[in-house]
Design a protein around this nucleic acid. Structure first.
Lengths: 189, 189
DNA sequence: ATCTTATATTCCACGATTGACATGTCATTA
DNA sequence: TAATGACATGTCAATCGTGGAATATAAGAT
């Protein structure tokens, strides 16, 4: 139920209409917490009903500008600072994949890992560029957007390094007996 | 829909009953992909219907031993090696939090980050211990469990480092003017 | 005899998510 | 003037993933 907090967070920066928020979800939040129209409008209504946000005067074409209420800030603060062990990510598809990577032929596993490394390296470079441009001229990001960016940067760098390491491990293990290991995934093998 | 692949993956290692699988989900997969009874049995039925697994002879107390079929292995292989950009994590609650961390008082933000660092450091140590014990005597983990473990290790180390870095950044920024910044979250402020 | 563990199965409810649909306004431009 | 496209808000139905709980029975241990 974190869509709620995403909305509260954005409204905590500045008041906005549902449409504005939708735009933000398509841009800066697309890779962090995607959401669709029905979700945004629905959740905004629920938030208003709960008194966490309020609607101002109606604008040009029925536009409703929402702003956060004190109760909303309080809720946001609870969510942001709760001491709970913070699961760091309850479910991880990456890990699930790696867990079973031994079930495909070594060559395929290595190809997968190389792909992971390349993707992560590319993203690392992209994020590094973004970081530099943000550091020069401000404004695009909410206050702590840079920290989020830095996290993404480090994450991708770590993932890339790990993938390279894992690939080399498989290479070591299967050295000298390349073809027969492929039998592992032959149907009925 | 990755519960499906978690089950296929486990059955790819060796045949098992729903009950066995459930145990695995409580142990080794608890932090990677948790699942409950209803999910496991339900999905097993669907998998059998789809021909990705098959049931052997009935055991002692109605026990049904499931094993993976060639079609199941094929599906698993597709899932494992698909070239798709592999979103690395579609939604990230961590990032969402960080994004809005500027909305609470610096002292609270720093406390939160310290908590994150401490948790991640503790997990890093735990995983390091596990890794050592696994490296000595084998058997507890599926083939590539060690790689998954290594990933978790590196992830937590990275997260801890980042949190320390972020906390020190906030400390730098707010040096010299401690109390007034707290007003940012005062209701109505 | 009774308790515990093993084992399978079903049902419900909730929230998240998607995608399609419906409706209307304002500004530009053909 | 009419058409278009960006702006703007909403609803509905359907599905899915998830979690919780109830039910049932049988084997093995005490």
């Amino acid at each position: 139920m974190s869509l709620r907090h995403a909305l509260l967070g954005l409204l905590g920066e500045e008041p906005a209409s549902g449409y504005d928020l939708l735009k933000t979800f398509e841009d800066s939040l697309a890779n962090v917490w995607p959401a669709t129209q029905s979700q945004v409008y629905g959740e905004l209504a629920r938030l208003a009903e709960a008194g966490l946000v309020e609607v101002g005067a109606e604008g040009p074409r029925g536009r409703k500008e929402y702003s956060i209420t004190p109760a909303g800030r309080e809720e946001m603060r609870h969510w942001l600072t709760r001491v709970k062990p913070a699961p760091l990510a309850k479910r991880s598809e990456i890990l699930l994949r790696v867990f079973f990577l031994g079930q495909v032929a070594p060559a395929e596993a290595r190809a997968y890992l190389r792909g992971q490394a390349e993707t992560a390296e590319r993203r690392t470079r992209e994020l590094a560029t973004m970081k530099e441009s943000v550091e020069r001229k401000e404004g695009d990001l909410p206050a702590h957007g840079l920290m989020a960016l830095e996290w993404g940067l480090r994450f991708n760098a770590m993932h890339a390094e790990w993938a390279r390491w894992a690939e080399s491990r498989i290479r070591e293990e299967t050295r000298g007996r390349p073809p027969e290991a492929a039998r592992r995934i032959v149907p009925g093998g």
